[in-house]
Simulated scan of single mutants.
Amino acid sequence: MLQQLTGLFKDHLSTDPAVYSTDKYTVYQLTDGLRFGIENTILTAREVDLLDLLAERVVTSTSDDTVSWRRRLEQTHSEEAEPFRMVHFLFEQLDARTGEDLQQLLRSFFHTPSAVIPLTANRFVVIEREEFVSENDLHDFFTALQSDFLTDGKVLIGQQRKSGDLAVQFRLEQAALRETPLLHIERFLPALTRLTLLSTDVRQELIERFITPLEYESRETIDAFCRANLNVSLTAKHLFLHRNSLQYRLDRLTEQTEIDIRSFEGASFLYTLLRVA
Rank of each mutant, 00 (worst) to 15 (best):
H88Y: 15
F188Q: 13
H238Y: 15
R219E: 11
H242W: 12
R243S: 12
H238L: 15
R249F: 10
P83R: 02
D16F: 01
E220C: 09
I117L: 11
D16E: 06
G37P: 04
V67W: 00
S114A: 15
L198P: 06
F132P: 02
R178P: 00
L192P: 00
Q247A: 14
F170Y: 15
A55T: 10
E80S: 11
T221K: 07
E56V: 01
L90G: 10
T6G: 01
L270I: 04
R123I: 04
L189G: 02
L234I: 10
E255G: 05
F84P: 00
A55G: 05
Q169M: 07
R123V: 08
R262Y: 06
L43M: 01
R107H: 08
E186G: 02
Q146K: 12
A228L: 03
I127E: 05
T272N: 04
F142M: 10
V67N: 01
L150W: 07
Q204D: 08
F9I: 08
V232M: 11
D64I: 14
L150N: 14
F210T: 01
E215N: 06
I211M: 11
Q104R: 13
L138T: 04
T196C: 14
V126T: 07
G37I: 03
H242S: 15
R194M: 09
H139V: 11
L53N: 12
S108R: 11
L273Q: 03
A81E: 15
L189P: 00
D32S: 04
S78D: 13
D16Y: 01
L53E: 14
S245L: 13
E79G: 13
F264H: 13
V276L: 12
I207L: 08
A175D: 11
L94A: 02
L138I: 05
Q103T: 10
V59E: 07
T66N: 07
L43F: 00
T62C: 11
A96W: 02
Y25P: 04
Q204G: 05
D64G: 12
T235E: 08
